[in-house]
Nucleic acid binder design. Sequence first.
DNA 1: TTGTAGGCGTTATCAG
DNA 2: CTGATAACGCCTACAA
Lengths: 315, 315
Amino acid sequence: MVTIKDLAKEVGVSVATVSRALNSSGYASPDVKRRVLEAAARLNYKPNEVARALNTSRSNVVGVLVPDITNPYFPKVIRGIEDAAIRNNYRVIIGNTDHDMEKESKYLEIFRQNNCAGIISATWSVSGEHHADSRPLVLLDRVVENHISIESDNFKGGRLQAEHLASEGAERILIIKGHEDYSSFNNRLLGAAEALEAYGTAYDTLPYAHLERMLDGAGEDFTLKFDGIICPNDVTAYKVLKFLVARNIPVPEQVKVVGYDNLDFSEYVHPALTTVEQPIYDLGSNAFDMLMALAAGEAVESRIMDVKLIRRQST
Amino acid sequence: MVTIKDLAKEVGVSVATVSRALNSSGYASPDVKRRVLEAAARLNYKPNEVARALNTSRSNVVGVLVPDITNPYFPKVIRGIEDAAIRNNYRVIIGNTDHDMEKESKYLEIFRQNNCAGIISATWSVSGEHHADSRPLVLLDRVVENHISIESDNFKGGRLQAEHLASEGAERILIIKGHEDYSSFNNRLLGAAEALEAYGTAYDTLPYAHLERMLDGAGEDFTLKFDGIICPNDVTAYKVLKFLVARNIPVPEQVKVVGYDNLDFSEYVHPALTTVEQPIYDLGSNAFDMLMALAAGEAVESRIMDVKLIRRQST
DNA sequence: TTGTAGGCGTTATCAG
DNA sequence: CTGATAACGCCTACAA
């Protein structure tokens, strides 16, 4: 491995000079600088990021926390983050928390041990405590007081789901609730409920756990009581669709189903899913940019990104 | 941040002693060791991984190269790797290469700059050259001479696809080829072709690019000429299914379709996809274990994992 | 403009 | 068994 020491020897100057020439921090005569750069290129010198991180106590690694990368929402978020990171010469370390507070704490510890430059978290237990750690932090698809966050317009998204169903003639609507610890799901619910009340459309809500029980064949089948179902995300909608189709309940004729996310798969399920699209990739890349701004000490504001309805065959 | 220096002061010994007590490398009296450990716990000391990596010139980070994390095959692989890594107190840095040789080289460089302990690569351009770098390397779902690799039994998988279609009565089969630079796709093709020849069933092959053209509406529609289609992976099968269904070609009555991977979604598409299941998660976690063995200087052999046919409605 | 020297937190060598 | 001390590769006062 070639180090600045090698360059120093090669060029015939001190390591300090080499360092300055390379970083154009401090001074270096044009001539020396040129020779150093030339030697660096010739010897294929690459700075050791570990040494740099130790010295500056700040690595060019950002930690990213997700519940589970296997949930198809997250790969796209992560891709957005990763692309933005690499453009800025940063790397990302992923942590899967499985909604487990202990795992999350463990990863936060790890990020600290690695002098990470900052953290992007799409998990929910970022509740003060373990964040005595003052590392820059951006929350993704989740808002918590006193923290910078970025999310899609969940309230509007919920409203779009509801308005669409109502305008298509649904009169008894079931809203399936998402994880209650997530502000995003709660806001979608709020948006949908408000819209439905404005329309004067009857609706009911259902905890996610109840849905699972029904899907498993246990518990009452309440699909017959509704003619419109609002799902907290696309994956849930896939399951609902499968359940309905398996029971020969015509979709959308008897029951209309709307999802949320617009995952790539949503056009392949049957019937193709009407859903609210959120800019998943951009959420990730913007989160990274916000993190950098934060790390640079700039003032940054939380951000809400627009969503839109994608109409397909399930409604 | 509490360091071994703090612990040394706290316990009243030298940093060298603290280090030895902590790592139980070298000697430390039971008494001193106990006191050090106690202080470490009390002060919540965590070793700085950056410093350690610099000193030992080996970090506890492994680099993982995938073409695109957004391809639904990879999140599960990565989850397998990540889970195994965290169990062993390792972290993983992901690199998306987009089949781009330059990006791949860049990531390899980055891994080197970070003193990564090893690399797991699911991309194909690991062709000697940039691997003068002698870091431990495990290839995933890809075999290259003189490199340790892990993959599923692609040949058998291809055979299963073909045998199934033939035994279901298909008589003119189309095999859609995957990326030709991947040994995994080539082996599936070989397995399928061999089985079909044994059966005496007629078949034809089609480069993936031609399929795309057809899907885009350009190019000839050759689906009418076949009654069985073997896809290189599930995602391709989804597209084929969608194309057929949109044209009202009855599946599986007129054309049977079989995929490869058994992604979670394959039960939600319409009709639910018959496919070959490979142990994606285990591929990842085993790859990590192999990498560790390699790094420890142990002799490790390339591995092939079993696959099986999952029968659903598309055949 | 340049070089010397100290330090980032650990581990490892070598005396004591 | 323990304590100085020298690395690891880089950056940055401070001096020259």
